[in-house]
Design a protein around this nucleic acid. Structure first.
Length: 119
DNA sequence: CTGATGACTATAG
DNA sequence: CCTATAGCCATCA
């Protein structure tokens, strides 16, 4: 798998993270089919193209912390954008139990017809 | 090629 | 909660 394909998959997964939820770097990597690729997700985000419209701010560490130091511009932007969507950010931390994206459940809500055995 | 780096993670004390 | 440690792996100097 080449670099571009990998990044496209990473971006694709991030695009699917619903508003009001967050996901960890490792979670994105796993869903994208890149085991132990948490750092690669961070790397891909660091190299985001200029005009992107990716919800990069919905990606945080597995412990629920924003990955940037608190005294940085990036930290404040991420925190504010999460709050705009209703995600509670206290002391740079998000309660993962409450806001973590759960793809399986989400898929059920999205495409019930295709996945439910209705017969 | 080699060693350092980092928007990571899990575990232990 | 915090620090230390050890994996991790694409990039980069």
């Amino acid at each position: 798998m080449d670099l571009e394909t990998r990044n496209q998959r990473i971006y694709g997964v991030i695009r699917d993270v619903p508003k009001g939820s967050v996901a960890s770097y490792g979670q994105i990597a796993e869903i994208a089919g890149i085991p132990r690729g948490a750092r690669q997700v961070g790397y891909a985000l660091r190299c985001l193209p200029k005009g992107h419209s990716l919800p990069w701010f919905r990606i945080i560490t597995a412990s629920g912390r924003i990955a940037f130091p608190e005294d940085t511009r990036a930290f404040r932007i991420q925190r504010d954008r999460l709050r705009e969507e209703g995600v509670r950010v206290e002391n740079g931390k998000v309660d993962m139990k409450t806001f973590r994206w759960q793809p399986d459940l989400d898929e059920l809500l999205w495409k019930p017809r295709d996945t439910w055995d209705e017969d």
